[in-house]
Design a protein around this nucleic acid. Structure first.
Lengths: 267, 267
DNA sequence: TAGTGGTCTAGACCACCAT
DNA sequence: TGGTGGTCTAGACCACTAT
């Protein structure tokens, strides 16, 4: 039981945070608007600066405000414009638009996409990946392709997500999958089809967590923003998994959208 | 560009945090294990206690450690045992097990479920809900049912998720949906079928964010744990939406699992 | 009761941003 | 250059947990 639940007065830092939070939620402080400075808050409440600072920190952890060194503290604007759904793997969509699903979604939002293939390596599959690819023991080799996805509004560009794709070596061998950043017309899934693997089912395991230290730096994440982690498994017409991709995406910019038939489950 | 990226030495609080993080990731500090106290860390690094405390705070925000007032700081154990998938709406599964999907999933994990229907009200639908139910203007009334879901390992019980279901008033009127906490055999979807709405498609919009102040308290969430928010729309055999549920779940305990056909999209 | 984290004070200097 | 947040010090007292 917390002090608040017992009806006691919360400590000053909490009370200042509560008051600012209410002002944000009531619209007295508008998105993009600036909060009073730490020194102003401290004086207004008759506390030390550290106490006002603690209040700001509480709000930052909740993802409600952005702190900008040298400028001030601002009410965060909630966007979450990008929605990624299962149709991103649809051949029909691929053939119709000629765009990769990431590019198609950004185009819909009037944003400029950029995808950067930062590495292609032949590695031993991590356990989690090997399980999902049902790799036979003794043949653990996969191609690991790491892609970074950016969005630009014309003025500035932000990283949105990272995707790491694992392909069993026997499937990738001798194809652009094994060594080319540019996969050519139709991209990834067109190349899989040429190897006899047409994506028929998609399994997606979704979790959320706070970013690791490295992810927070790489994705340029403000405090109080979690990441969505999606472990995608592509399954072909024969029911065999042929690729696994782990996406890590900024949860403040991206959302997932699934539309599914319900009675189709066969267990 | 941060000071670290310029090759400068990070400030003492960061360096202490980096060192502890490495110890956790290398396994020198095991899950459940206790970190040195703030006073010990401060002395060991020749800093003020507040500086050591700041280091601990950085790790807490990353979700790596739990702080327990009066006891110490402990390496968080990662569980995430519960997986919720689209098959939870399957009639076949419902009829086979006789269990609600939540109860079935917890039983699989050897946990004891408890579901508490805390309120049933007739309200005006929030915009977001009205849009998804395609409510005609002028008939905005819905039944709002709020359920809390708990899991118990026999010793202690934790809240896992909250689900708020909205049903158009004309569908709920005169049925247990409108006023009964106990929905009877087959629960929610059996009642919908009796009203002529068989769930055929499910749309799920998934996001993640830090919990609100109230959610953090209600779900008893430790710092550094985000929530998954799922906006589920049930669609019947005629293609009409008939219920919307917003789930908010602890991301450290729950995950989502989707298995879908790919080429079925009809746009 | 001893040790822990939670909160606070009243300063200080630094790094960053806008003017 | 003046104002902002970022970090730090060297204390202090309180609230909580375990023994």
């Amino acid at each position: 039981m917390t002090s608040e639940e017992r009806g006691e007065r919360p400590p000053p830092s909490r009370r200042i945070a509560d008051q600012l939070r209410a002002a944000i939620q009531d619209g007295d402080l508008r998105p993009g608007g600036r909060l009073p400075s730490e020194r102003e808050l401290a004086e207004a409440h008759g506390t030390a600066r550290n106490t006002a600072r603690e209040a700001i920190r509480i709000l930052a952890e909740e993802g409600l405000v952005d702190r900008r060194h040298g400028s001030g503290v601002f009410v965060r604007e909630r966007r979450r414009a990008l929605r990624f759904g299962a149709e991103r793997y649809s051949r029909r969509l691929r053939e119709k638009t000629g765009l990769s699903p990431y590019r198609a979604e950004l185009a819909k939002q009037g944003l400029l996409p950029r995808v950067d293939c930062v590495s292609i390596q032949r590695v031993v599959a991590p356990t989690e990946i090997a399980e999902r690819l049902r790799l036979p023991v003794g043949t653990p080799d996969v191609v690991r392709r790491e892609n970074w996805y950016y969005a630009s509004d014309g003025a500035s560009e932000h990283p949105v997500q990272v995707g790491v794709t694992y392909v069993p070596w026997p499937i990738a061998e001798g194809t652009p999958l094994a060594d080319s950043a540019n996969l050519g017309k139709g991209s990834l899934y067109a190349r899989f089809e040429e190897r006899g693997h047409r994506i028929t089912r998609s399994r997606e395991e979704v979790t959320a967590r706070m970013p690791s230290h490295e992810e927070a730096r790489g994705l340029n994440l403000p405090t109080g923003v979690p990441v969505l982690e999606v472990l995608h498994t592509g399954i072909d017409q024969a029911g065999h998994p042929f690729e696994v991709t782990r996406f890590v995406m900024r949860a403040d910019l991206a959302a997932l959208d699934y539309d599914m038939a319900v009675e189709e489950t066969d267990d």
